[in-house]
Amino acid sequence: MESLTAIIVGVLVAASVYLMLAPSFLRFLFGLILLSNAANLVIFASGRMTEGAPALVPEGASAPTGVVGNALPQALVLTAIVIGFGLLAFTLALAFEAYRRLRTLETEEMREAEPVEGGEETRA
């Protein structure tokens, strides 16, 4: 299971890097989403995989019986997913607002904060 996850992580990272190198911010954002999923998978896999054994304590007992999955990475992943979701929602809203105001999401054309030397004529 771990090696399969590792391969998936590798594919995700490769795809995300490819997307992030694109000149459009929207593609970059999709790359970011893939990368965030890859990072979450890394954490999940680092807790070692156990199949079909949720970390639940049976009724009446005070500790889980038998081999159960590692609950800590699951908690970490959940936290990371929630935080990542919040950040991506913000970024998406920001991208939308930027598109509305700047009329472009091509990173080469977004020079408001750092104008090109020599002024307007190069931009037009």
Partner: peptide, 8 residues
């Protein structure tokens, strides 16, 4: 506008 660009 500059803030949005910088923000991105």
């Amino acid at each position: 506008k500059a803030q949005l660009d910088a923000g991105i």
